Computed example of a mutant assay.
Amino acid sequence: MRLDKYLKVSRLIKRRTVANEACDAGRVSVNGKAQRASYEVKAGDILEIRFGEKSVRAEVLSVADSIRKEEASELFRYL
Rank of each mutant, 00 (worst) to 15 (best):
L75I: 13
V60K: 01
D4F: 06
R50Q: 10
C23T: 06
R57P: 03
G26T: 04
S73F: 00
N20I: 03
L3M: 04
R68K: 15
V28G: 07
L12S: 09
A22V: 03
R27K: 15
Y39L: 12
E40T: 14
E59M: 14
Y6I: 06
D4Y: 03
K5R: 15
D24I: 03
A72C: 14
V60C: 08
S73Q: 01
G26N: 02
S29D: 12
R77F: 07
A37S: 11
E71W: 05
L79F: 09
C23I: 03
R16E: 06
L79C: 13
F51I: 10
A58N: 01
L61R: 13
A34T: 07
A37G: 06
R50A: 11
K14R: 14
K8H: 04
R36C: 09
A25Q: 12
G32F: 10
G26M: 00
L12C: 07
A43T: 13
R15M: 10
E71V: 06
V63D: 09
A58P: 01
L61W: 02
V9T: 14
N31T: 07
V18P: 02
E21P: 01
G26I: 03
I49R: 01
F76S: 12
R11N: 10
D45Y: 05
R27D: 15
N31K: 02
C23Q: 01
A72E: 02
D24N: 06
G26L: 04
A22S: 08
E59Y: 04
A37N: 05
V30L: 07
A58L: 02
K33V: 15
L75T: 12
I46T: 15
A19K: 02
D4A: 09
Y78D: 05
